[in-house]
Structure formats: structure tokens, C-alpha cells
Amino acid sequence: MIQVENLQHTFLIGKKGKEKHVPVLKGVNFEVKKGEIVAIVGKSGSGKSTLLQILAGFMKSEQGSIKVNGMETAHLTEAESAAFRLQQFGFIFQNFQLMPGLTAFENIELPLKLQGIRKAMRTEKVKKLMDKVGLTDVADHYPNELSGGQQQRVSIARALITNPPILLADEPTGSLDSETEQDILLLIQSLNRELGLTFVIITHDEEVATIAHRRFRMYDGELVKEEA
């Protein structure tokens, strides 16, 4: 499903004229198979977030190749990359990244709007999914009226609404207490089992990594496979 080969990236740090080249990714290789939960674990500054951002197309790598469903994505233009994201990826962010001016329902509906789907069809899809993730009661609530766990559920529902084959999660439980964390991890596991969705989870939390089928550890720009 995802093949990453020899991915390299360097940051320029410091004042103009006195910049220092700091390598963040030093030739990363890994593969994610369909229906897998893969965790990339690492301390902050290890380069795991950079890896996710390049994977998602938010930034470009200097060298290397990324193939998603057989398609090379490393050289897509910004517009192509956006269209690709809309079809292939769903995103779950650490701090949920919900639109504060939209209700839970409208937040989940947003990707469908971007896809140009008509209102009647959107409403039906969103209602079904909200029911599934247990959000029906809070459909008309704004993000600031929801608990952290509810917000992350909305965020997951938003990621799922377009039926993407791959979900990219950046510290999905980073802002939640341990009880809610368990809820969200169970939800991810059940989605993986029932819908066969592929998850790539970036985390520093070893607990989160336990739900993964395979684990990679990021250390100083290099990725090492760990046994599950």
C-alpha cells in the first residue's frame, strides 16, 4: 500500500548566510501493507513528524521515493497533492484541528463538500457515520462544547467520511487522558478490523504503539524495525 525508499531530508537552521544543514531523515525505508496498523515511535526531534508530513505531501523530500497504491507521490504539484490527499488519506491530528465555527456535523461534512457532493447525499453519509462512532447526540454541538474524546471522535469521523484507504494519525491520543485514550485506541482497532482500513500512527507513546501490527522506531533520522 505504501512504499518508502531512501527518503532523505535536511533542514536549514540559523541566520541567513550562516545556515547549518541538519539532516532529519537519513535514508528512510519502510513498507505498509493493506489493512495494517503501523506505528512509528520516536522521541521528539527524532524526525517522525517530518516523515509524516512528507508522506502526506505537506512538504517535499529532497531525495527518495514514496509510492502510495503504486503511485509515485514525491513529485506531485501542490494542487495534485491536495487532490490526492482528498482521495487517499484521512488525517487524525493530535489537537483534533476541528473548525471552531462549524458544528460536529458540519466538521465531518467538510471533506464531502470539498469533493463536491450534493447536500442530500452528504447528510445521509454523515448521519450514518456519526451513528457508528457514537456522536449522534452531539451533532449540533460546536467543538468547544465537546469533550476531548468527543472531539477526537469527530476528527476521526471527518477522516473517515470520504472512505480513504489510508489514515495518517499524528499523536492521536496526545491530548487525551488515559481513559479516553483507551476508548480512541479501541475505536481505531475496531475500524481496522471491520473496515480493513490501513493506519499509520506516529507517536511517542509506547502504550499507543501496542495496538500496531508492526512497529518502527525512529532514532536520529533513521528508522529501525521492531518486533511487535
Binding site: 505537506f58 482528498l86 471533506p111
Partner: peptide, 16 residues
């Protein structure tokens, strides 16, 4: 800015 970032992240094209 943040909202635009989210829109872009979930797949809104720069043109849109």
C-alpha cells in the same frame, strides 16, 4: 490561518 491549514490538509486545492 489555522482553518486554511486544516482545509489544505484535508485536501482543499490552493485554487479553491
Amino acid at each position: 490561518t489555522r482553518e486554511i491549514g486544516v482545509l489544505k490538509a484535508i485536501g482543499a486545492s490552493p485554487k479553491l
